[in-house]
Write a protein that binds this DNA or RNA. Structure first.
Length: 548
RNA sequence: GGUCUGUUGGUGAAGGGGUUAAACACGCGCGCCUCUCAAGCUCGUAUACACGGGUUCAAAUCCCGUACAGACUACCA
C-alpha cells in the first residue's frame, strides 16, 4: 500500500519501528533469567485469580534472578473503572507484592521499558501497524457492526466456520481508490491483518506446563487497531512482550485457544516467540457446576474480602503456592522454618486440571500460621486489622496492650501451640471476656451444674478457702481437687468414670462453674492462665456479678 | 456448530505400564490424653483412577471413541 495512503490511515506518527527496536534493547540478564509480567486490566477490583497469576509470575522471576514487571492492559476504554490502576497497586501491596518495573501510581512508573500502561503506547502499536500496512500485510476495514452480523448469520446458516477470513473478509479486496473514497466520506475504519494462514494446517507449540500443543493455524483477519486507535489485546500482547523482552508469558488457559493468533502475529512481525505457560485458573463450585472464578459472579473472591475477614496475606500466599506446585506442600511441611523463597518452583510440576478453590484448606493454613507467630505479633496484627474493621475492639486493645498480649500468649509458646484463630475477625469473639470494657454478665453457659445456689456455693467456698493467686498451676489444680472432695465431687476423673453414681459430679464440672462465672463461656483456653491474667480483684468482681 | 483443554476419595491433590502400591494434606467420625475447648496422638472414612473399546504377558498410567465439564469462537481482556 502506498505511503501517502498509509499516513492518512494512521496519521501523526513520528518514528518508524527501528526507533523502537533501538529504544528497547535486549535485557542484560544472566542465563535462565525469566522475564515475565503481571498484566491486569483496570476493570474493577483485584480478584483472587489475578493474585494467583501474580504470585506465580513473581516466584518464577525471583528464583531465576529475572524480572517481573506490571503492565496495565487498558486498551478497552469502555470497561475502565475509575482509579483502576491505584486499586490494583493498592490491593497488590496489601499482599506484599512489589515489581521490578511498572506503574507505582496513576502518574509515575519505574523501569526503562515503559510506558507500562498500554493506552500510553498508542503510537508504538500504530507504528508497527503502519509497517504492516506498507508491506501489504494489513488493510483498513470499513465494515459496520451490522454488516459483520450479516456475515456471521450467513456463515451460521450455511454451517461455515464463523469469522472474518478468506472470502468472507470482504474489505481485504478493496482497491486503493475505494479506500480513498470511503475515507473522503469520513467512514470509520479499523486495521486488520491480511492473514495468509490456512486453518487446515497444524501448528505445534511447546507450552511450559502442558507440553506439546497441536493447534490449527490462524486464518482470521484479526483486528490489529480498533476504531479508537488503540490495539486489540492480541496485537498489544505481541508488540509489548517483544519490546519488553518478555521470556515467559504466564497467563490463564482461557488464552489457549487464541494462541494460534499470537503465534501467527509473532511470525509475521518477525519476532522471537516467548515461552508460554498456560495455567488452569482457579475454579469455584457453583451449585453443581464448576467454573472459573469470575469477577462479575464472585465478588466475594475479591482480595479485599480476605483483608476484611482478616486472613493474613501469608496464608493466602501459602495456599496459592500449594495449589500451584504439586510438590510444594510436602516441601513446606518438611521445611517449616525456611523462607518460602527457598522452594524451587517448576512449570512441569504445575497441575493442568483446574483447581477448585478450597476455603477450608486456606483457613487451616491460616490457623497454623497464626499459631506460630509471637503473642506480640499476634497483638500487632489483630490491632492493625481492628483499626480498620472494628474500631471498638481496636480501642480496647490499645488501652490494654499488656493484658491482650498476655492473653494471646496463653498456650502459645510451646511446640504444639493452640490453634484457635484462622482470621483476625474471629479474635474478638474468642477473648472479649478478658476485657472489662467488653465483658457482660449475661448469657452464662452453665453446663452440668446449673443450680444457682450450688453455683454460688462453689464460687464462695472456692474464693474464700481455696483460691490463692500465688499458687503454681499444680498447686492451683490440687486445691481445686481438694475442694471437690470437700463438696462431694470426684477429684479423680478415672474414679469418677468407674463409679459416677457415687459423686455429685466431677472436677471438670466444678472447674466449668468457675470458668463460666469468669468468662460466661464454657469453652476457653487454660483456666489457670486466665485467672492469673485477670487477677484477684477482677475474679472477685466477676464472681459477685453472678450473684446479681 | 467449530477449535482447544480437562475428568483419581467428602475436598485439594501425588503418581505417569509391573511386587495387593493408590502417597500427602484438608475435612469428617471413633477413641486416647485431658479441668472445658483448641492442640496433640491411634484408628477409621465402606466399591477413588468418568465410561466403552484397543495395544500389551501386564494399564489409573499408552491409543481410539463416548459422556460430562470448562475455555475460546468480539473493534473484551
Amino acid at each position: 500500500m502506498n505511503k501517502e495512503l498509509v499516513e492518512r490511515l494512521l496519521p501523526g506518527l513520528t518514528h518508524d519501528i527501528s526507533y523502537y527496536e533501538e529504544l528497547y534493547p535486549k535485557r542484560n540478564l544472566g542465563d535462565g533469567a525469566i522475564v515475565t509480567r503481571y498484566a491486569p486490566s483496570p476493570t474493577g477490583f483485584v480478584h483472587l485469580g489475578n493474585l494467583f497469576m501474580l504470585s506465580i509470575a513473581r516466584k518464577m522471576a525471583r528464583q531465576t534472578n529475572g524480572i517481573v514487571y506490571m503492565r496495565i492492559e487498558d486498551t478497552d476504554q469502555e470497561r475502565l473503572v475509575e482509579n483502576g490502576i491505584s486499586k490494583i497497586i493498592e490491593a497488590v501491596k496489601q499482599f506484599g507484592f512489589t515489581f521490578d518495573e511498572g506503574p507505582i501510581n496513576e502518574e509515575e512508573e519505574v523501569g526503562s521499558y515503559g510506558p507500562y500502561i498500554q493506552s500510553k503506547r498508542k503510537e508504538i502499536y500504530q507504528t508497527y501497524a503502519k509497517e504492516l500496512l506498507l508491506k501489504g500485510l494489513a488493510y483498513p476495514d470499513f465494515t459496520t457492526k451490522e454488516e459483520l452480523d450479516m456475515i456471521r448469520s450467513e456463515q451460521e446458516k450455511s454451517k461455515r466456520r464463523i469469522g472474518y477470513y478468506g472470502k468472507w473478509a470482504r474489505s481485504r479486496f478493496l482497491s486503493e481508490e475505494e479506500i480513498i473514497k470511503k475515507l473522503d466520506e469520513g467512514k470509520p475504519y479499523i486495521i486488520r491483518l491480511r492473514n495468509n494462514g490456512d486453518f487446515n494446517n497444524k501448528i505445534v507449540v511447546m507450552d511450559a506446563i502442558r507440553g506439546k500443543l497441536e493447534l490449527p493455524e490462524d486464518d482470521i483477519d484479526q483486528v490489529l487497531i480498533k476504531n479508537d486507535g488503540l490495539p486489540t489485546y492480541h496485537f498489544a500482547h505481541v508488540i509489548d512482550d517483544h519490546l519488553m523482552h518478555t521470556t515467559h508469558v504466564i497467563r490463564g488457559d482461557e488464552w489457549l485457544s487464541s494462541l494460534p493468533i499470537h503465534v501467527n502475529l509473532f511470525k509475521i512481525l518477525g519476532f522471537e516467540l516467548p515461552i508460554y505457560a498456560h495455567f488452569s485458573p482457579l475454579n469455584k463450585k457453583d451449585g453443581e457446576t464448576i467454573r472459573k472464578l469470575s469477577k462479575r459472579k464472585d465478588p466475594e473472591l475479591a482480595v479485599s474480602y480476605y483483608h476484611e475477614m482478616g486472613i493474613p496475606s501469608e496464608a493466602l500466599m501459602l495456599y496459592l503456592a500449594t495449589v500451584t506446585n504439586s510438590n510444594f506442600e510436602e516441601w513446606y511441611l518438611a521445611h517449616e522454618n525456611e523462607d518460602i523463597d527457598n522452594f524451587t518452583m517448576s512449570f512441569n510440576k504445575v497441575g493442568i486440571s483446574g483447581t477448585i478453590f478450597d476455603m477450608e484448606k486456606l483457613l487451616s493454613i491460616s490457623k497454623n500460621i497464626l499459631s506460630k507467630i509471637t503473642a506480640l505479633e499476634m497483638y500487632d496484627k489483630t490491632l492493625e486489622w481492628a483499626r480498620k474493621y472494628d474500631k471498638e475492639f481496636a480501642n480496647v486493645l490499645e488501652k490494654n496492650q499488656d493484658l491482650a498480649v498476655k492473653t494471646f500468649n496463653i498456650e502459645r509458646n510451646s511446640v504444639k501451640p493452640r490453634k484457635d484463630f484462622a482470621m483476625f475477625s474471629e479474635v474478638k469473639q474468642g477473648i472479649y471476656y478478658m476485657f472489662e470494657e467488653l465483658f457482660k454478665n449475661e448469657n452464662y453457659e452453665w453446663q452440668k451444674i446449673n443450680d444457682i445456689n450450688e453455683i454460688k456455693n462453689i464460687l464462695d467456698v472456692y474464693l474464700n478457702k481455696y483460691y490463692d493467686e500465688k499458687d503454681s498451676e499444680e498447686e492451683w489444680f490440687n486445691k481445686m481437687k481438694k475442694m471437690c472432695d470437700e463438696l462431694g465431687y470426684a477429684s479423680n476423673m478415672k474414679e469418677y468414670k468407674q463409679n459416677p453414681e457415687k459423686f455429685k459430679g466431677n472436677v471438670a464440672d466444678v472447674s466449668t462453674v468457675i470458668r463460666v462465672a469468669l468468662t460466661t463461656k464454657s469453652k476457653t483456653p487454660n483456666l489457670y492462665d486466665i485467672m492469673q491474667i485477670l487477677g484477684l480483684e477482677t475474679i472477685k468482681k466477676r464472681f459477685a456479678l453472678v450473684n446479681e
